[in-house]
Computed example of a mutant assay.
Amino acid sequence: MWETIRGYLTFTRKERFGVLFLLLLISILFVAPYFFRPSVGEPDPVAYEKMKKGIREFDSGTDSSRKAGTYDRYHENKPGMDTRNSGGSDRPVTGALFSFDPNTITEAEWQRLGISERLTQTILHYIEKGGRFRRAEDLRKLYGLRPDDYERLLPFVCIARIPGNRQTRSGFYSNTSENQQVAVKKTDSVYRQNALKITANAVYPYRVKKGTITEINMADSADWSRLPGIGEKLASRIVHFRDRLGGFYKADQVAETFGLPDSTFKKIKPFLTLNKPALQLIDINNASKEILQAHPYIRWQIAQGIIEYRRQHGNFQSVDELLQLAQMDPQKFEKMRPYLVVKP
């Protein structure tokens, strides 16, 4: 056993010289920085005194850049922030006080109240996009409105209510007039239902969309957006999906649109009609790989299989021959079959 251990610890003459050389080289590299440090020279007395003076001013709170410049520049970069009291000044904002409805007053009236022009533009932009103040306390949510301005304006806020509307526990606004009953779902202070509802007693600016009969292969984005639960984005997705397919051959295909909830599809399904479908057919004997894989039902794996089959066996004699592909299963085949054709 000792012989085996000694065999591992025995070195030749060259190996011993090599180990000693490496140890010497490592030692030199370790101590060399202590002998070759760069000279930094003598410190500049003027610069040193200037630095000490700046530190004393900062500690004593008399640094002018901290009192005014830095603070103001920071606040000037905040969109919609009232900066007239910035910089630690206790000077109150002057402005007239009068009763006002924040949903209806003009830019000039906001500025009369002592609100800065930038914050005024933010408020008007919020209202223009469909926002609405429902309670006086909603002013507190304005980014850039100073707390003292909020306390000053709060007693003078008078928000007019929509006649005949009340909010229920479910988050809907219900019209309880004798002739009309309208339920409108609230979505983050923006109402998608913005058509006018005129009754004998009042004007109601919101109503639920009424579905219209839609031919799914002829409807454009505007037609789709008239259906309940379908906005501009979903309407564009449905049209884009239909174009990529080459037309719908049954109404249930609409439900396959990306982002379309099943509950929404159930709402619009009674309004969907399909006349004789005019589909864009793909000739599997002549279509390129790019055309094949661009179809939502085919994709690149099946497209590659079709190209390989044509290269090895020649043209397809019928569409049913696609079932011979290893990548194909009967369910996929039935979905894509109406879009495929064989031409010599």
Rank of each mutant, 00 (worst) to 15 (best):
K50L: 06
R118A: 08
F58R: 06
W224Q: 02
L153S: 06
Y206V: 07
K52H: 05
G305E: 10
K289V: 04
D243A: 06
T187N: 03
I282T: 08
K267V: 12
P33C: 11
M328W: 13
D262F: 03
Y48R: 11
P338L: 12
L113S: 00
A160S: 11
W2N: 15
Y249D: 03
V319M: 08
E76D: 07
A287F: 07
A294E: 06
R244M: 06
V203I: 15
K197P: 00
D101Y: 10
D72W: 09
C158V: 15
M218G: 00
L322T: 13
Q301Y: 12
T257M: 00
L323S: 10
L281V: 10
N77Q: 15
A202I: 04
P270N: 01
K52M: 06
F156W: 15
A287E: 01
L113W: 01
N85Y: 01
D148H: 04
L154A: 14
H240N: 07
L25R: 12
Q121D: 04
G231C: 02
Y204V: 13
I198T: 13
L153N: 05
E117F: 09
G211Q: 09
Q181A: 11
Y309E: 11
E151A: 14
I115Q: 00
A287W: 03
E107Q: 08
D101L: 10
Y249P: 00
D329I: 14
E128C: 01
E256V: 06
Q167D: 12
K14M: 03
C158S: 14
Y309R: 15
I198V: 15
G144C: 04
R207G: 07
E57S: 10
I55C: 08
L260A: 04
L292C: 05
K53Q: 08
G95P: 01
A235F: 00
A160I: 07
A303G: 09
I198Y: 07
Y126Q: 08
K269P: 00
R310Y: 14
K67E: 02
K276D: 01
G131F: 04
M336K: 05
K250W: 00
S318G: 09
C158L: 13
I307M: 15
K289I: 04
H125S: 09
G305D: 14
S288Q: 10
K267D: 02
F248Y: 07
T10F: 01
E107T: 08
Q304R: 13
R244D: 01
N217D: 02
G54K: 06
S116A: 08
D101W: 09
S221V: 08
S236K: 11
E232W: 03
T273V: 11
L20Q: 08
Q301T: 13
G211Y: 08
A255Q: 05
A136R: 12
N201A: 10
D262K: 12
I268T: 01
